[in-house]
């Protein structure tokens, strides 16, 4: 470290700026005016299209005062929606976590044919409209669907009930964890796992003691994003839910109902809760990114 500092000092004996004629720019710089203009455009665009909507959520939510704000959550339909949203995420996220790790293990630790095709298939839910994601389950399990009559006979409800909401959420959040892990594990290679096995570790020991500690931050990152989407999913859940108040309404669906009833302040109050979740997710994500950056050699 010390030696490095010394050499770099020696390499830069003269401050570069002092040696540069005033009009000349370094080869990778734009003129100050262009820089300022581009920065202004970027910030204005982000402010207008992204920050303002977020600010509006909180301002509208608190429009009628704190008392009203908190009363919006006390309503039974609201608590039921919050409970269902938490339940859905509590099922969908762990399922996708296990799937993501399993898929990433198969894809990154082994060489086999058809690998990139498999990755494409895993990514497929990203390019399907949320509405269609819901529709496929209605077609499969709905009354007029392939399995509908059999389900009705056996008195099993999937569509317009909680299982449908969970299924649609799993579909929509399917790729999140796998997608985060695959590049990370590809970069890390298989040498450490091989070393563990040569040293006598079993497959499980290798996973728990060597692989998992190496991927834990990336995994957490994927889980965070997966969770944000699972709690906030609207289109797919809307199609399979049936909108039964207090039973099959998640938070986003509850927001829609309140909004359509012109109960704006309450709608924004519930929305602010989800917005808060989004902000927490982003802060955690930024912290994780800092951590991942620092660990890079």
């Amino acid at each position: 470290m010390l030696v490095e500092a010394q050499t770099s000092d020696m390499l830069l004996p003269i401050p570069v700026a002092a040696a540069r004629p005033q009009a000349a720019l370094a080869p990778r710089e734009e003129s100050p005016a262009v820089r300022l203009a581009l920065t202004a455009v970027a910030l204005a665009f982000l402010g207008l299209f992204i920050v303002l909507p977020l600010v509006v959520v909180f301002s509208e939510a608190l429009q009628k005062g704190a008392a009203f704000y908190f009363s919006a959550f006390a309503e039974p339909a609201a608590t039921a929606a919050i409970r269902l949203t938490l339940l859905t995420a509590a099922i969908a996220v762990p399922v996708n976590l296990v799937f993501g790790v399993t898929a990433a293990w198969a894809i990154t630790k082994f060489e086999f044919r058809g690998k990139s095709f498999l990755i494409t298939l895993i990514d497929l839910p990203f390019s399907v409209s949320p509405v269609i994601s819901g529709l496929v389950f209605v077609l499969l399990f709905g009354l007029q669907g392939w399995l509908g009559p059999w389900l009705a006979e056996n008195d099993i409800k999937i569509v317009f009930a909680v299982p449908g909401i969970v299924l649609a959420t799993i579909f929509v959040t399917f790729p999140f964890v796998a997608r985060e892990l695959i590049p990370l594990m590809q970069e890390q290679g298989t040498a450490e796992e091989e070393a563990a096995i040569v040293l006598g570790a079993s497959g499980w020991q290798t996973f728990w003691r060597v692989t998992l500690p190496n991927i834990k931050w990336g995994l957490l990152y994927g889980v965070l994003l997966c969770n944000a989407r699972a709690m906030g999913e609207f289109g797919a859940v809307s199609v399979v839910s049936g909108h039964i108040r207090g039973l099959t309404n998640t938070m986003p669906l509850h927001i829609e109902i309140l909004y359509n009833e012109y109960n704006f302040a309450a709608a924004f109050a519930v929305a602010s809760l989800l917005a808060l979740l989004a902000l927490v997710t982003l802060v955690a994500k930024s912290l994780l990114e800092l951590r991942l950056d620092r660990r890079k050699p």
Binding site: E194, I197, V198, G200, P213, N214
Partner: peptide
């Protein structure tokens, strides 16, 4: 027999040290 049972000491080219240990 697999690598696990062979009891050979192997030093990898880039060492493959466990980075979190």
């Amino acid at each position: 027999s697999g690598a696990r049972e062979r009891r050979v000491g192997f030093v990898f080219q880039h060492y493959a040290l466990f980075r979190h240990m």
